[in-house]
Amino acid sequence: MGSILENFTSGIIPMEAYIFVSFIMFFSGIYGFLSRKSLLMVLISIELILNSADINFAVFNRYLYPEHFEGFFFAMFTIAISACETAVAIAIVINIYRNLNNVEVDSLDELKEPEASDEK
C-alpha cells in the first residue's frame, strides 16, 4: 500500500493502482454472485467480474509488453463473448420467468433428486 501512496503524486500512474481497482470490481462481483438471490443480480455480478478481467488484460498488455496486442485482443474478444453470454443468459432468465413467475436462484433446483423416501 505504501508504494501506491508514494506514487500518488508522481507523474506516473502505477500499475498496481489499476490492478487494485480491478480487484475491487472483481470482489464486488464475487460478493454479488454469492449473496444475491435474483438471477439478474447474479448476471450483473458476472459482468463485473468479466469487466475486471478485461481491465487486467489491457493493463498488463500496456505496461509489460507495449509492443504486443495479445491483451488488447483478449479484452476485445472477452467483451464479445460476454455479449453472447448475456444475450443467452437473459433469454434463459425470461424463459424461467415465464415458467416459474420469478427469477430467484434458489427456485432452480429442479434437477436435484427430490427428497423422496425411495431409499431401499
Binding site: D106, L108, D109, K112
Partner: peptide, 12 residues
C-alpha cells in the same frame, strides 16, 4: 447425496 443441493450459489 445431500451435498448436492442443486443450489448454484453453494457450489460457487
Amino acid at each position: 447425496k445431500g451435498i448436492q443441493t442443486g443450489k448454484v450459489q453453494q457450489y460457487a
